[in-house]
Design a protein around this nucleic acid. Structure first.
Lengths: 199, 199, 199, 199
DNA sequence: CATGAATGAGAGTTCATTCAT
DNA sequence: GATGAATGAACTCTCATTCAT
């Protein structure tokens, strides 16, 4: 079938499907969720919108694949591993990597924004997002890291882990917004924010 | 109701137009820009969508009016007045009032997001937003407040005013996002965040 | 609104709706249920298919109206009243009127055929038909008439009312089919069939 | 399976074609002419709908083959042989066999209805049906049987052979309809109907 | 002022058909 | 022979827009 049989069988259909998902992803990043048109997505890959339905029976199916791609392949798979020795180092790395990625590829953030914004009105998205509550995961992980930091004496003793974790996540969410509005952003921000923990 | 009103000539048509703009505003807050339907807007005011076109010749005209309303009447008019004696008190009040309003009436934030989200693709919105850069204003005001706080010895000496102001604004932006995603939010967050300034 | 206000308020919309239902009815009679196209129906009334959706939000709604029209207005409202003194006279009138109508306006029969044929595959039709089981009604009525005829000595004593009623209805159903296939049909048939009852 | 078969050259292609026709026949019986999908037909035989077009260049060609099959192989070949000694026995057997087959395999009747229903609009079907008028054959045969029965004194003397034959055929047609509508059907019906002949 | 009515453009979807492999 | 892939035509439905009344 394929010219090179050595690869783990990546069929033409799989490639097309992936290309379509990525095209849809870019469309959402560019024109928003509501601006998504199957005709545009198909045209971007060089096929008709009728052919798109050969790969995805319905627009919803395409959207679900996009969500999957956005959440599980672009966001989660690249989630920072909290590498580092001390809790501070791990949190630092977490924040740094997220910020860096946000700058390098803002589309991921824009698409995620679109998803959470549209979720209340679109059951499909709502379900897909509820399947894996990223922010709850982040929060839990940060709380335990902060608790560890307090226990080790690295963080301030009077720090409330829950609130501090919420501050960090809220900050990350806000960082995403700065892609859209003009707020001066610098690396110094992270440095200062971390002082919140260490005091 | 009355054909001749004593007030400075607020015609019935102007009232209707305003009511329609507010209805459209709420629709956008609820279902986003893409979910905006002239039928819904008109129905909310008690007229048909055909009549709506008497007041606004096209949907774009209505949207432009909504943008005007959102930016100049809702966003700017609601900016906290930085009341208080010390810089810390002023900043505290600034943050508190913003957070409070966000809770009481999330529509403002939701529409704001819709605006900035659509700005890159819609020159109309882009112009309206550029006409008055709220966040630049906030940033400048916060920087001067922080500098004053440092000068007064109320804030940490090693604080970078620019970065700290950006952190605060980014945090506020993030707080708006928590309306859409499930992140635990508490008043304690503001308290802890302010410690960033005081040390 | 209307030029002549004396009539019980038959609005333009009601007329159009009725015209559309009748057009759809004729389409079904002519091209079958599957050949029903909203464009054709609309064109037959002289409007666009978009306008049709002004009167009927969906094709299913139109179909439901057609079923209503076919069953309740064309079939039931015109159902023979079993007039006559003796049971035989009533049954005779019942059969005669049905046969006569079938000849005069075969479309009703053709549409009903389409409905029952499509019912198993189309839940909408299934529900609409189940709402009023015409044939069960007919059967019950015929059974009681036959029982009365037996009691009065007008009908054969060894007649099984249930089977006889089923025969009559089955015959009626078959008569409808003769509209489509070439079977010689004469009034004499009814005369002879009734001898089945009288012996 | 075998490339070279001893039989009078029934090629693999012919088998496939027949299988496809039978599959289409069942599809029509199940979902009607309008519900016929080449995909379904092909899938039922275990091939794709693309391959189907190798055997039948167009859907119409397939349908024509189905009509041919339905009329000449299913309908005609299954006609009862009027076995029996007396005319009554022959007619009884004729009716009984027809009813029995109708119960055992309703598909025949369902497809027949589809055929006669579509005939007015589809010249192809019209021709195929006109080529061999089954019901005219039945009618002629029944008439001669009834005349014989009258001559033998087995049937009522005042019986009109033409009308009586029409009644029987009409009844059979109606019996087919009872597959679609809920009318109580019993073997007793045939018994009573035959009394019509014998008196 | 207000509306009912009508429309065209465009959306997603289905399906028979074609073609290179 | 068989198939995956691609397509155009046609369908139902939506919506902003227009216009006579």
């Amino acid at each position: 079938m394929s010219k090179h049989a050595a690869e783990p069988h990546i069929s033409h259909a799989d490639e097309r499907r992936k290309a379509l998902v990525e095209a849809a992803y870019q469309c959402i990043a560019g024109k928003g969720f509501s601006g998504l048109r199957t005709r545009d997505v198909a045209a971007q890959v060089g096929i008709t919108h009728a052919t798109l339905h050969y790969y995805f029976p319905t627009k919803v199916a395409l959207i679900q694949a996009v969500i999957d791609y956005a959440v599980f392949q672009r966001l989660l798979q690249n989630v920072p591993h909290y590498e580092g020795n001390t809790p501070l180092e791990q949190i630092h790395r977490f924040l740094t990597v997220l910020q860096q990625r946000m700058r390098e590829d803002p589309s991921n953030y824009l698409v995620l924004y679109e998803l959470v914004r549209s979720a209340p009105n679109e059951p499909v998205i709502q379900e897909a997002l509820a399947q894996r509550d990223i922010f709850a995961d982040w929060h839990a992980r940060l709380v335990s890291l902060i608790e560890a930091g307090i226990a080790q004496g690295q963080f301030r003793a009077d720090l409330d882990p829950g609130s501090a974790a919420s501050i960090l996540i809220t900050f990350i969410l806000g960082l995403g917004m700065t892609l859209l509005v003009s707020v001066p952003v610098s690396d110094e921000m992270l440095v200062q924010l971390e002082r919140l923990l260490t005091g």
